[in-house]
């Protein structure tokens, strides 16, 4: 016979009608939930509580891939390991070399900022995190990382990989947190063009292969190959981190703005390790008088 739960309503609609009524009710409920989730009413809070509850599931689902990976590491040939080691050493040396010149540049930059009495530059510390290997909905533009509230991760924290900006922390659980990728169509990233300093906003396109900058003036000086960096406006992403490279500039005659396509540097869909940018460590500004002295010294000769 019929489902027990329909006995009440079937008196009014009949067996088939009751089921259709229930279907419509659930569809309506789903639509309400979706629109609330989309607009950020209440639902994100419910979601984060539920995620808290389901946190072990992520580890459970990510475990096989991790086990396979570590098995691969145990059985990989000695020769391969030596080759990889040599490669990494070489890379480290190269990086160390460029960091050395950068340290000198940083010092110089600080000195110049001081002369101009501009705000102090900032240095950052990073925290290493690994992505938890679970397959999410391709339209969610989200990844999970294995650091959470216990490691000092906070919502809104900027996430980068070795090449560029990846996204920002969205939900923080105890031992893991979710990261919203910059490719999300709802994500806006304040950027500037490194060559000209033109500030604009890069939106996610829904594809991990490109970002969109729809608000660049038609006459603006942008060309393919230009590097895009974060502008630091909005106080969420620190300034000066590479985002991507201009791939294509579309200037339609009738349009008000040029459409600029940017290829992100970061490996949004295939990265494995990421860095969390810690709260900026601002150097204490030196006392004002000393700054004056510097300025005088600089002007004297």
């Amino acid at each position: 016979m019929a489902n027990t739960e329909s006995s009440g309503s079937s008196r009014w609609f009949g067996e088939e009608g009751a089921r259709t009524a229930r279907l419509l009710m659930y569809i309506l409920l789903a639509i309400v939930l979706m629109s609330m989730d989309q607009r950020g009413h209440y639902v994100p809070r419910i979601r984060s509580t539920m995620e808290q509850l389901f946190e072990p599931v992520f580890y459970l689902a990510g475990w096989p891939a991790q086990a396979l990976q570590s098995l691969g590491r145990h059985t990989s040939a000695r020769r391969e390991l030596i080759a990889e080691n040599r490669q990494l050493r070489k890379q480290l040396l190269e990086t160390a070399g460029s960091v050395q010149t950068q340290a000198a540049l940083w010092q110089e930059n600080q000195r110049l900022r001081h002369l101009l009495k501009a705000t102090q530059g900032q240095a950052y510390t990073f925290k290493f995190a690994q992505m938890i290997r679970v397959d999410l909905d391709p339209f969610s533009h989200k990844v999970w990382i294995d650091r959470g509230a216990g490691d000092g991760v906070f919502a809104g924290q900027a996430v980068i990989d070795g090449l560029g900006i990846v996204g920002q922390v969205e939900g923080v659980l105890r031992h893991s947190s979710s990261v919203r990728l910059i490719s999300d169509p709802d994500h806006a990233l304040p950027v500037q063009i490194n060559r000209t300093g033109l500030r604009t906003v890069a939106y996610g396109s829904g594809e991990t292969s490109y970002l969109l900058m729809p608000n660049v003036p038609l006459q603006a000086d942008v060309s393919p190959g230009d590097m895009i960096v974060t502008s630091g406006l909005g106080d969420r992403f620190p300034a000066g981190f590479p985002v991507g490279e201009v791939e294509q500039v579309q200037r339609d005659r009738g349009a008000t703005f040029a459409r600029v396509y940017v290829r992100p540097y970061a490996a949004l869909d295939r990265g494995r390790e990421v860095l969390l940018i810690e709260q900026a460590r601002t150097e204490q500004p030196r006392i004002e008088q000393q700054g004056h002295a510097d300025l005088q010294q600089a002007e004297e000769p």
Binding site: L33, D37, F139, S178
Partner: peptide
């Protein structure tokens, strides 16, 4: 919730 898609 688990796959991170829109709730519903």
């Amino acid at each position: 919730i688990l796959s991170g898609s829109l709730l519903g």
